[in-house]
């Protein structure tokens, strides 16, 4: 993770991250990126300071009648005198014969165990269920593999955890935060192998029971199948 990070989340997204307005999946991707990106941490710090300075009450809270009761109830609780040490989570992720170190938040998520499934030749993915607004998965691309060309309805974020991949628009290395919006059609490929964390906003809803295909690569397969069918007809 020592190489310079070249691709970052845009400022407005960092702002929404700090506000707590992003989905859990997207927040996880930003948090993981920031663990290795001092620039974005600074941006987030500045955004938070600004937000706090502007923090005021737009809607007045009707003081509950039993305010005194609430205060009493609270101040009778014991205080924490020391940080409760969080249970240490292993940062290691083992994929085949490869061992990589994960950002803290992803290590936490992966600690429940990952279930890898082959999506296409040389490409596997392990979905993690974080929320209903996004589809999140770890993606492992073996050296020399290529994802089918695809586009998607929502924004897709690929956070590079290890190795490199490239597409029509550039090459991405460790900690790069790559955003592809619905207008992009792209085909990720890798020479040396790559492990990513991917977040797809607004999951695709298939009415035909193709639930397994609701990830970007799955969608591409779905489109391919449809195209082949059309050709046959």
């Amino acid at each position: 993770m020592s190489a310079a990070v070249m691709f970052h989340p845009p400022k407005h997204q960092i702002q929404r991250f700090v506000e707590g307005e992003l989905s859990a999946g997207m927040s996880v991707a930003l948090s993981a990126h920031m663990e290795f990106c001092a620039d974005c941490r600074r941006t987030a710090g500045a955004a938070e300071a600004e937000l706090v300075a502007q923090w005021n009450a737009k809607e007045a809270l009707q003081s509950p009648a039993d305010l005194t009761g609430i205060l009493d109830a609270i101040t009778q609780q014991p205080q924490e005198r020391a940080n409760t040490p969080s249970t240490p989570v292993s940062r290691k992720l083992v994929v085949d014969d490869q061992v990589i170190s994960l950002p803290r938040v992803l290590a936490q998520i992966a600690s429940a165990g990952l279930n890898w499934k082959t999506v296409s030749n040389g490409i596997r993915s392990a979905k993690v269920d974080l929320d209903t607004d996004t589809t999140c998965e770890f993606i492992h691309m073996q050296p020399g593999s290529k994802a089918p060309q695809h586009s998607h309805r929502g924004n897709e974020v690929m956070l590079v955890l290890d190795g490199k991949f490239s597409d029509e628009m550039g090459e991405y290395g460790a900690s790069d935060f790559v955003i592809r919006d619905p207008a992009h059609r792209h085909q990720p490929r890798t020479e040396t192998g790559c492990i990513c964390f991917s977040v797809l906003d607004s999951p695709l809803v298939f009415t035909e029971g193709w639930l397994r295909l609701w990830n970007p690569i799955g969608l591409a397969l779905f489109q391919l199948t449809r195209w082949r069918r059309r050709k046959l007809i």
Binding site: A24, S27, V28, S31, V105, I109, V128, D129, L130
Partner: peptide, 14 residues
């Protein structure tokens, strides 16, 4: 929203 508890705010904003 009954979303899975596998990640919490303190993991995201440590």
């Amino acid at each position: 929203r009954r979303q899975p508890a596998c990640v919490s705010a303190d993991d995201i904003w440590p």
